[in-house]
Structure formats: structure tokens, C-alpha cells
Nucleic acid binder design. Sequence first.
DNA 1: CGATGAATAT
DNA 2: GATATTCATC
Length: 318
Amino acid sequence: MREDDSNWFNRWAEELPSPEELMPLSQTLITPDLALAFDIRNSNTAAAVVAAANNGGSPPRAHTHQGPPPPPLSSSQLQPPSSTQPNSSEFGDSADLGSGAAGEEPARTLKRPRLVWTPQLHKRFVDAVAHLGIKNAVPKTIMQLMSVDGLTRENVASHLQKYRLYLKRMQGLSGSGGGGGAGGGGLAASPDPATDHLFASSPVPAHFLHPSRSNSDHFLPFVPVLHHQQHMAVAAAAAAVHPQLQTQYHRQVGHFGSPPTNGGGQFEHPFLARQSQQPVHRMGQPVHNPVPGYVEDLESANATGGRKVLTLFPTGDD
DNA sequence: CGATGAATAT
DNA sequence: GATATTCATC
């Protein structure tokens, strides 16, 4: 089985979320046209990461933006060649609870939508940490390896913090069988999804529990992942029909995922993409990847059931 | 100064 | 409770 890590990439790729399982879709969905029609520019829910895209004809933009400031947080795709990198970029979300009002000019301090760590994203996170080794697993590096567009160092740092607590908790408790499925036993083990639902979704690499040892310092030559395409007309349509799927209170906007890469379901690397970023002297160098990223779109589910479009992550995975 | 990690705030 | 943001250090 696992041998050199030379293939880790392949395995990783295979494990990556498939198009069908990705993009949980959620958040508000205002059609860009609608938003424009209302001349909405700041206060409103426009933060939909996945917007409607569709239109048969030109590659749709999943954003309600058109103006000058290109929001870095796109549904995931390459970012504009501009010079601004996605580090502290902001997104126009607003929509804060209640207040929407916002009567003031957003000056320039818009904040990005809250990141929602889906199991898939978390998986990537864990994989990155595992491959880096706890030692090198620092936010910046993890973020780079994850290659998720829109992901910021802060996002990762925050999640990492929580993840560490989770690991600590597990160590502290006796090693229950290693988390195997439910072996919890009765004690306070924690294989329970209730205790750590998200974390439980991904297996925790063994070495995580005992940093001792020089451990494997894998040197990843950087992993530029790419491959994307966005085309979720169906989703958009569904969203349009059910504009209030979860717009009640918590309107967490912002979702990262990788757009459907295709529908064939054959061979492809459904990666989340995030290229770019500045040169970081650390591992390898920037691998350029022109990423052709072109594929056929596919509607996948939605049509099948005709519902459940905006729900949480996929349910049959992991 | 920038990055990291913990604390704290939302 | 999950993320974001702030703060003190390295």
C-alpha cells in the first residue's frame, strides 16, 4: 500500500471531493441582475459565493460585481491577474444581521463572509497538516498547501487552533481505539460526532498524537492545484426558487469549494483551486500551472431530487 | 515587521 | 459553538 509519498499527491487527488460532493451551496442568492437592478452595492445580501451563473453563452461570473474592485473571494477559480493578492482582500458582504442598513459608504472596510469549514475543506486541511508534519504545520504553509482560493491565513490559523485543541483533547483521553468508528466506549472518548462533528469527519493521522520523533518532514514541492469551472445553473435556479433556504438568522456567507470539474466522473483532479499568492521561499518554487480548467459542467443532483440544493455538505461521503 | 499562537470577541 | 479578530511574543 502506501509507499513513497511520491504518490501521495495522486491519492490525495483521488480523495478530494468530487464535483458532486462539493459546493454545498448555500447562502443568499440574489441574482446579479437583480442586485444590479436595485443598485445594490453594499448593504444587502449579496455575498453569495455561488451565484447564478448560467446563461448560456458566456462564461458566467459568479459574482455580483462588475465594477472595479474584484473581490477575491470568488466561487473558486483563478483570481484575477491583478496585483492584489487575496490576502487581506475584502469582500462585499455586509449583510450583517439586522443591520443591514448600512447606510454609510462601505468605505473600504468590508469584511469577508464567514468561512464555513465543510468536511471537504477540513479534509484538505488535515491532509495538508499531515503532509507537512505538525512541525511545519503553520497557518501560512497550510494555507498554501491547501490551495483554496479565498482562504486566508487567519482562517487557517483559527481552524488550526481549534484543531489543536481537538487533538489535545483526544490525547488526553485515552486513546480510544483511535477513533475508529465508534469505539468510544462509554467514557469520554470522543469519536462522537457530537463532540467534534467536523473533526470526526476526517481521520487524524497517527503522528498527530505524538509529535515526538523527527517525524516525516515531507517536502512538498508546492502543490498548485487547479482545475475548475463553474457552472451551476441549476443550483442558481433552485436557489432562485427557494431564496429562503436558510436565510433566516445565520446567514453565513462564503463557501469554498471547487466547482464541478466535469460530469464524466472519470479521471480528473477535482481540486480546489487557488493559485497565486506571493512567492514564498520555503518549498520549491511557484509552479506555474496554466490550468486549462475547462470541462463540461454538470448539474448533478439537484435535478434528481429537485430540491435540497442548498444544504450542507454531501451526505455520502466520508 | 511579519508570522504564530492564545485569548477574546462576535 | 464556530469563526473572526485582537494581542503579546517570537
